[in-house]
Write a protein that binds this DNA or RNA. Structure first.
Lengths: 152, 152
DNA sequence: CTTTCTGCAAACGATTTGCAGCAGC
DNA sequence: GCTGCTGCAAATCGTTTGCAGAAAG
């Protein structure tokens, strides 16, 4: 196997769950697999489509446990449905492009110079306000290519 | 009156509502006044506290209408309750510092150099993905000064 | 066997909506 | 008066939780 990214991912997830006294069950494996296959955050609906026969309540419960274990990250963009992605240390640092019209979210990398700028900003805020900055978000919000023709 | 910022604000809100065929009622004035008095986004609870006797449903309805009219902006940070602030052209461009622990949100200005970087990034994404970027968000997420001592 | 997981159904909490009466123009 | 606004109560919708049985170790 040339690219064992998914195998590695499952191994890491298993390990982090065990550390929390949790089991890496088929349901959890399915969720992590679905997120690992995707290049963007997935909504609950999308996750259920990709997880044959999983009860919605199990999905919610497992995603919460996976987030607790540091495997998954839950995000809320603008509409009222949450989306899920793998934790940042599993995917690499990235940002989001969000379509106001259809709610879709795309992953993108920001130029290093921009990242440097945000870090400087974060340091300044930490100093000024005694705020401990854990991480930052940069979202570009607008209209995606698919939704643009629909504007009139 | 030396600083007629609030008067001006109410005049603008009135005008934008009328443009939409809406009235600038006492309830709406109270909401806009509360947001204009605040230096940070307010939750529904905070808005109701500051709006003596307004029904919650009226507040939600009016905030939706004010948002439609371009007077108010609704934002969702991480927890599951929305927050509201005046539209950006009424407050000036700014960003948010969000406490993961207590959910509080603080307004902050980013250095111009950082804003330039984000715009360049937005332009690049627009070109690459055919995405029309309407605006951007930069959030610093972490632990506020008030919540820091509680970490152990 | 014991503990954790699971699905189902009921419960929740933020937000929305239907409706009848009140208010603005 | 007509139309929009309000409060109230009921409905919605995403998400959470209680519970009894199934599965992992």
């Amino acid at each position: 196997m040339i690219d064992d990214r998914l195998g590695e991912l499952h191994r890491t997830a298993d390990e982090r769950l065990r550390r929390d006294g949790q089991r890496y069950t088929a349901n959890r494996r399915a969720l992590v697999g679905a997120l690992g296959d995707s290049d963007r955050p997935l909504s609950m609906g999308e996750l259920l489509e990709r997880s044959e026969g999983m009860a919605q309540s199990s999905a919610y419960r497992n995603l919460a446990i996976l987030e607790e274990a540091g495997v998954v990250h839950r995000l809320v963009t603008s509409d009222d449905t949450a989306r899920y992605e793998l934790a940042e240390d599993l995917t690499g640092h990235h940002h989001h492009v969000i379509c106001d019209t259809c709610g879709s979210v795309l992953d993108v990398d920001a130029p290093p110079e921009l990242e440097r700028g945000v870090h400087a900003f974060a340091d300044a805020v930490a100093t000024t306000h005694g705020f401990v900055v854990a991480h930052h978000r940069i979202d570009l919000v607008g209209t995606c290519a698919a939704c643009t023709p629909n504007r009139h």
